[in-house]
Amino acid sequence: MLGLLLLQVLASCHWLGHSKVETPFGSCNQFFYARVPPNNALNPKNPAWICQHFRNSYHYATLYDRDRRIPVYSAYKYRPRSTEKPPEWWMVEPQLIDEKVDLEDMGRESDLIAQHHFTLEQIEESQAVLDDYKGLKDLDLGCLNPSGHMESRESKMATFSLTNVVPQDSVLHKGQWNIYESKTMPQQTKDCTITYVITGAVPGSTDIAEGRVNRPSHIWSAACCLVGTKPTSAWGAIAENDKNQVENLSLGKLEERLTELYGGPVTLFDNACPRQ
């Protein structure tokens, strides 16, 4: 069973992460174009704004749903680069256990229990743990911010966080969503000076791990491309989380679709990013 889990880890995002909880994104709003996060239509009832921190740097930002134990979205700058493969450790977020705890970096469950005297029950109260993803059938650990979109060894390591993971349909994850991440994105961004990305998951009606972790109904992603300092293009993608199909669409059409799915008007980027 452990071997199967490790294979799922490798198929997902491959590496580890550290974090800092913010309200909201005070230390890491640089991962949003014009430092403007999505509007509140995406906010869950029990949110955590996490600045994913590792080795003296912030690498991306995540809005986390403590009740459903999945990320709502992760926001990052698209900077793909091949680097040496780092260690394969899954991490959890100590500040989701207790916001008063003086631990900026994430840690492995075993280390938090042994070194900081947390219990597993404390850790799993408001976030997913490794046991939640054991024995998955037809599902992978799908990283919203994939390691392949990161530049440095440290930033790739930072994606290996359970706060960046959702249960994703295995065929979609290895199929059309992988094609979007590894082929469509490089094509779309070839002339961009910098590309801001927000990738999210729409909460679904089913769960895994005996109801602990929500299985999203849809996976979506949006990007805003800058040439120099000016936004020149933007786009989106969305997929139902039980079909191997990705629909590529404009940023405006994606926001319209998400408005229907979330039940309120959704704005993902600053208005300067083109909607058509």
Score class of each variant (00 low, 15 high):
Q188A: 11
I50G: 02
T163P: 00
S161I: 00
R275S: 12
K20V: 05
D67M: 02
M91D: 11
K20W: 11
K137A: 12
R153D: 03
E154C: 02
I179S: 10
L251A: 01
A128R: 09
L249K: 15
V92C: 06
V171W: 02
T267D: 15
D140W: 07
T199I: 08
V227W: 03
D138E: 13
Q168C: 12
V166Q: 08
G236S: 12
D169L: 06
K85N: 13
R212E: 12
S161M: 12
N241E: 06
D207Y: 11
S110L: 11
Q188S: 08
P37C: 07
A34K: 08
H218Y: 14
F31I: 01
A158T: 13
E125G: 03
L144C: 03
D132M: 00
E93M: 03
Y33Q: 01
S27T: 06
E151H: 12
Q188D: 12
L112S: 13
C51A: 12
L249R: 15
L139M: 07
V101I: 15
V166W: 10
P231E: 03
V72Q: 00
P86V: 07
T184F: 13
R212H: 05
W15F: 10
G200P: 13
S250F: 07
N178L: 07
V197S: 08
A209V: 01
E104A: 14
Y64D: 03
Y58L: 06
A158K: 01
L112N: 12
H116Q: 03
M185A: 09
G26D: 14
W90A: 05
Q115C: 01
T232K: 02
E154N: 05
H149D: 14
A34Q: 14
E255V: 06
E124N: 10
N241K: 06
K190R: 15
Y133W: 08
E240V: 00
R81A: 11
A272R: 11
D132W: 02
M150C: 03
I198W: 10
R69I: 00
